[in-house]
Amino acid sequence: MILGQVVDFLGVPDDVPGGIARRMQRQRVLYDGEHHYDVALGEQALCTNIGGPEVMRQRIERLLRDLGPASLTLGILPSTARVDLFPVHGFNIYGDGDRAHVELVSSAVDVGERSELALYDTAFAAPSSAASYGDAAEALLGKARSFPVDAPLGE
């Protein structure tokens, strides 16, 4: 559903099944024992209704399942947490910090300059240090799971 929205928005050829297959293949690295991922996710992302109630429920259930593997450290940044950095776009830092990847609306940027990579390290440290982990992250996911995503505004 969400990939279909991206296809419609960008006006690109519809290869949603291929995109899903590639994403599922990339997710296998979570369980291969060779990689480790540190993720900081804003609580607001858990409550932003993209895709409808069923997609939202599946997203939360998947995150709850992914709290288990040793290859993933998932932090949920509570909406009320103080963060000493203005919000920035999403990004990934790869390898031993030798590359950052930023996906934009119409393109992607790979950053490899040492001084710029240090900024990405700092930009990740701010929200991740204010995030909740373990049982506290699970509680925030449970709170989001009970949020009525199909309720009219104001209820």
Rank of each mutant, 00 (worst) to 15 (best):
L64Y: 01
G75N: 03
P152N: 09
D8Q: 13
D32M: 06
P13Y: 07
R114G: 06
Y94Q: 11
Y120T: 11
L74F: 04
P152M: 09
L67W: 04
P69G: 08
R65K: 09
P148E: 12
N49R: 14
Y120G: 05
I76G: 00
Q5R: 15
G51Q: 11
Q27D: 06
D14H: 13
V7P: 00
D98P: 01
E138A: 13
N49L: 09
P17T: 05
G95E: 10
V6S: 13
I20N: 00
R22H: 09
V88W: 04
I76N: 00
V149H: 14
A137E: 01
G97S: 12
K143T: 10
T73L: 06
A125M: 05
E138I: 03
N49K: 10
T73V: 08
G75D: 02
E103N: 12
D38E: 13
L3H: 13
F124I: 10
G75F: 03
A81W: 06
V29H: 08
G51M: 10
D96M: 12
C47G: 03
A100H: 05
V6A: 15
G95T: 06
F124Y: 15
V12W: 11
A40K: 00
E61P: 01
R28E: 14
D121S: 13
R99F: 03
L117V: 05
H89A: 13
R114A: 15
V102A: 08
H36K: 12
G51V: 12
D110E: 15
P152V: 14
Q44S: 14
G33Y: 10
V88G: 09
R26Q: 10
V6H: 14
R82Y: 10
C47S: 10
V149R: 07
R23P: 00
I20K: 00
D14K: 07
D96K: 10
P13Q: 06
I76K: 00
P87N: 08
I93V: 15
M1D: 09
R23C: 08
L41S: 03
S79T: 07
N49F: 06
V55G: 01
G18Y: 07
A151V: 07
V83A: 07
G95P: 05
A100E: 09
S71D: 10
D135W: 03
L41H: 03
R99M: 15
S106T: 12
R26K: 06
P53A: 15
A118W: 06
S129K: 08
S106Y: 08
A40C: 11
A131H: 02
D15E: 14
C47D: 06
R59Y: 07
I76C: 01
A136T: 04
E138K: 12
P148N: 13
G4W: 05
G11E: 09
L153E: 15
F86T: 09
V149I: 05
Q27G: 04
Q58S: 13
L140T: 01
S146C: 05
L140Q: 03
L77R: 00
P148C: 06
G75T: 02
V12Y: 07
P87L: 11
T122G: 01
H35F: 12
S115T: 15
G90F: 09
Y31Q: 08
L67A: 02
V12L: 12
E103Q: 12
L104G: 05
A40S: 11
V12I: 15
F91E: 08
R62A: 12
P13D: 09
E138G: 03
A108K: 08
V6Y: 11
S132L: 05
E116W: 07
Y133V: 01
A136G: 01
R22Q: 11
Q5W: 12
L67G: 02
D135A: 15
C47Q: 11
S146V: 04
